[in-house]
Design a protein around this nucleic acid. Structure first.
Length: 494
RNA sequence: GGGCCGGUAGCUCAGCGGUAGAGCACUUGACUUUUAAUCAAGGUGUCGAGGGUCCGACUCCCUCCCGGCUCACCA
């Protein structure tokens, strides 16, 4: 072996694997069946201990990745990471004889299995004293540094497995994410909802205003889009008599990245016949409260140093009033888009040529109101201009029955009483198409004529909801960037 | 895309005109209850890439690549 050449951390380990093979030891044996996980072993010991037995006689086996290695001559402690839990193994030459020498060929990162009895060390750590141990998989590359862990953001995200191995916080976040999604599923199931799956590849990217990704189907020789929303598919199902449906699915928006935007993200949408937006509003606050309790055991979370209480009921604010209070502008004083655009320019808000009135109101909202919404809040009753799929308010047709839910200064949910008048829907989507051709970026909702045809067959009064799962998880885990709650977020380059 | 900050050993970082550093990891040895084990000894390297200035560049200048933060668009 070359004497201590640095590049050969890898080579050294390949050599070790080779030496093991020469000794008849397979560095990658096909299977190993531990009797216990690290967690179960710990529980087992605690159970015996409570019964007054500090030296249980059970012979058990565990397996895991070596994350600590403290050899002390003729004995050694090895810390194993198994799933999210750690358990220590104690190896003794007295006990193991020649097999003990195998220790020399072990490294941080290797997987081993060990079989023996549990005991507690003099410092109180539950430990498995190995009567035998087995190499399960040799690691050829070194793990990140044990004390500081892996800090390099790019490396953490591109090689997420390293992040998961060395940063416990990262593991916890994704456990919470998983539990959140299953708590949401239980919530809907209890309310008699059906979970469905609808197409990702669609002929028209409609249901929201966002730029789609375009792809091509070869056999059909036709461009298709990746969906930007679930809405129109799900409403077709309501037309078809599926009265309570939801989908948790990935949607794709061909737009910039930021701390709260990833080009593909997980959207929950639900539709309930014979519900209206008020019903949906109470459902949202109940859902978030119950999910938080189930997943975290509390409704209180911390975000950016501030405590946020997700407990229902949430505050309700009238949108128009909230914008007026924070910006001083009553957008109803500016019924014409051009006048409102001029007003915004006066206020030093950047305005693009072709911004619709709805778009301008949205700018007021996100500039003045959104940052102030730290505690969970519903903004209620949106102007018609920014909501082409929502039903008009009966007492004021310039507004629609729509709300959005906010917390930590972020939009979390968007919901409305669904527009089910096909003639009105056709007009409003046609108007969007017209605006789309005027606007600089083409980001308006698109007309999906087939969807309107579905409405023409009759859709019952329906309340619908959209909620960003990633952002909900950010809130629940106190993370301030979306990348920390997505296992493999989109990065620049490569 | 614009502005600001950064890229040095496997990892975490220092050095910022005078010939490359620390801790951890690694290698060798000692050590039979350790906890970031300890003790002794040893080698870590295209200092992101290319060009320039200079007697001399990791250090200064230019270009490019990669990343972070931020602004703009979007949920």
């Amino acid at each position: 072996m070359p004497e201590g050449r640095g590049e050969d951390l890898f080579e050294q380990r390949v050599e070790k694997a080779k030496r093991l093979r020469e000794r008849g030891i397979d560095p990658y044996p096909p299977r190993y069946k531990p009797t216990h996980t690290a967690e179960a072993a710990r529980a087992l010991y605690t159970q015996h201990e409570l019964a007054g037995d500090a030296h249980p006689s059970d012979i058990i086996s565990i397996a895991g990745r070596i994350v600590a290695l403290r050899p002390m001559g003729k004995a050694a402690f090895i810390g194993l990471l198994d799933g999210g839990d750690k358990l220590q193994v104690y190896l003794k030459k007295d006990e193991l004889g020649d097999a003990y020498d195998l220790l020399k060929e072990l490294d941080f990162g290797d997987f081993i299995g060990a079989k023996g009895k549990l005991f507690k060390t003099r410092t109180g750590e539950i430990t498995l004293e190995a009567a035998e141990f087995t190499l399960l998989a040799k690691a050829l590359r070194p793990l990140p540094e044990k004390w500081h862990g892996l800090q390099d953001v790019e490396k953490r995200l591109r090689q997420r497995y390293l992040d998961l191995i060395s940063n416990e916080e990262a593991r916890k976040i994704f456990v919470i994410r998983s539990k959140t999604v299953s708590a949401i599923r239980r919530f809907f199931e209890q309310r008699g909802y059906l979970e469905v799956e609808t197409p990702v590849l669609v002929g028209v990217a409609a249901g929201a205003s966002a730029k789609p990704f375009i792809t091509h189907h070869n056999a059909l020789d036709r461009d298709l889009y990746l969906r930007i929303a679930l809405e129109l598919s799900l409403k077709r199902l309501v037309v078809g008599g599926m009265n309570r449906v939801y989908e948790i699915g990935r949607v794709f928006r061909n737009e910039g990245l930021s701390f709260k935007h990833n080009p593909e993200y997980t959207l929950l949408e639900s539709y309930e016949a014979y519900a209206d937006y008020q019903d949906i509003m109470s459902m949202v606050e109940q859902m978030v409260e119950s999910v938080a309790l189930e997943v975290l055991g509390t409704t209180k979370v911390t975000h950016d140093g501030k405590e946020i209480d997700l407990k229902a009921p949430w505050k309700r604010l009238d949108l128009r009033q909230a914008i007026k209070d924070t910006s001083g502008v009553d957008f109803e004083d500016y019924p014409d888009g051009h006048e409102l655009a001029n007003k915004l320019r006066e206020m030093k808000i950047e305005v693009d040529r072709g911004d619709s009135r709805g778009r301008l109101i949205d700018k007021l909202l996100s500039t003045y109101v959104e940052p102030t919404l730290i505690q969970p809040t519903f903004l209620v009753d949106y102007p018609l201009d920014m909501s082409p799929l929502a039903k008009k308010k009966q007492d004021n047709p310039r507004f629609v029955e729509r709300f959005e839910g906010f917390a930590a200064g972020m939009e979390l949910a968007n919901a409305f009483t669904e527009l089910n008048d096909p003639i009105d829907q056709m007009e409003r989507l046609s108007e969007q198409e017209r605006l789309s051709k005027l606007s600089a970026d083409g980001e308006t909702d698109r007309l999906d004529e087939d969807f309107v045809t579905a409405l023409e067959h009759g859709m019952p009064p329906t309340g619908g909801l959209g909620m960003g799962i990633d952002r909900l998880v950010m809130l629940l885990t106190g993370q301030d960037t979306i990348r920390e709650v997505i296992l493999f977020p989109q990065l620049r380059g490569k």
